[in-house]
């Protein structure tokens, strides 16, 4: 090792592998600093706006509360005192709905994701199509013919079993794990606008409109594909040996899954949970349709601040700020998991 380094080396070459040389380091910080500004400025502007009165918003830009304009708490007062319960109720709804549906989605989704990596499925194409057929019939009989749904469900199931045992054996072509996985992700392609009316009618018929349950179920279904995909990748990166030895000891699949695999994948679970939580937390269109008074969520409140008098920037800013605060808090808590979380999860495509 030479003891003397030239100026070029000092500036551009790192002293050790774990270090970064001064010039690249400075450049790095400049770029990262710039992007920090890009990320934070809109949020800063929201905070500033929340302290302005209307005339200060419409009168050209003002940047610093207390310096170029006099801050006012009127918007905060309106949201928390005047609206009061109309702010708190959606807040609790959002918390209940998004947390429960994220948990359910992560549990169901990781089970499916695990199964898709460890178990080989070969469902016969014919029986799958048949199943979809009977499902459609069932739904039609509930929605259009007005059959009571337990009866329809039972008879649909019976019909399927009968058909499966009679004609089911004739099918040859079968599907594979990858087909199932692609089928799941493809469920996210259709825009919500196209599916919201059928879903509305469905929940209306089973009497769940304007309840938390309707939103929880729908969000679970909508986000399940993402969970399955992310968790599938994650499980693939966990070595098989552990499970194999456990299986040799006579542990059942459930036990292997719940006592060995899940604890190992805490990071992936945390990251996926966070992502799904954010998606549920911010969803607008489905919430608009499935809730009326009792189950309304916060994004509706944001959109509602644009009424006949144009966007009420000051109120809107307050609502957005109180909306992201808890998510930021959760992120900070889960952050140490996420670092490792998506890390393994995303490694294999």
């Amino acid at each position: 090792m030479s003891t003397k380094r030239s100026i070029y080396q000092i500036l551009f070459e790192a002293k050790s592998i774990d270090d970064v040389a001064p010039v690249p380091k400075t450049l790095t910080y400049i770029i990262l600093g710039f992007w920090t500004f890009v990320c934070l400025f809109p949020l800063y502007w929201l905070i500033v706006t929340s302290f302005k009165i209307p005339i200060q918003v419409h009168d050209g830009p003002m940047y610093f509360p207390g310096i170029d304009f006099k801050p006012s708490m009127h918007a905060w007062y309106y949201i928390f005192v005047d609206l009061g319960n109309d702010t708190l109720r959606p807040y609790f709804n959002t918390i209940i709905v998004s947390i429960s549906s994220s948990i359910i989605a992560v549990v169901i989704g990781s089970m499916a994701g695990y199964a898709l990596t460890r178990i080989t499925y070969q469902p016969k194409l014919g029986s799958v199509l048949m199943f979809i057929g009977t499902l459609v019939l069932t739904v039609i009989s509930v929605v259009w013919l007005g059959l009571a749904w337990p009866i329809a469900l039972a008879s649909g199931l019976a019909l399927y079993v009968v058909m499966l045992t009679t004609v089911g054996r004739r099918f040859k072509k079968s599907l594979h794990n990858n087909d199932i996985a692609f089928f799941m992700i493809s469920q996210r392609i259709l825009p919500p606008v196209a599916v919201v009316i059928p879903i509305y009618v469905l929940f209306q018929r089973i009497g769940l409109l304007d309840t938390h349950a309707a939103l929880i179920i729908t969000y679970t279904a909508v986000n399940l594909p993402i969970v399955v995909w992310l968790m599938r990748d994650f499980f693939e990166s966990i070595p098989m040996d552990l499970e194999e030895s456990a299986a040799l000891d006579g542990a059942s699949r459930y036990r292997v899954f719940f006592t060995i695999i899940l604890p190992l994948s805490k990071p992936g679970l945390a990251a996926t949970f966070l992502l799904v939580l954010i998606l549920c937390w911010n969803e607008y269109l489905i919430a608009l349709f499935l809730s009326t008074a009792n189950a309304q969520t916060l994004p509706l409140l944001v959109a509602a601040m644009n009424a006949t008098r144009g966007p009420q920037w000051w109120y809107m800013a307050v609502v957005i700020i109180i909306m992201i605060t808890p998510v930021i808090a959760i992120t900070i808590v889960l952050q140490r998991f996420i670092t490792r979380g998506l890390l393994i999860g995303a490694v294999k495509g």
């Binding site: 089970m111 499916a112 695990y114 898709l116 199943f131 799941m184 259709l190 919201v196 594909p225």
Partner: peptide, 16 residues
């Protein structure tokens, strides 16, 4: 392991 996910998706994605 896989049926819950499939069922939920069928009910709320295929049907609509």
């Amino acid at each position: 392991f896989i049926l819950p996910a499939i069922m939920v998706i069928l009910m709320l994605a295929i049907f609509p």
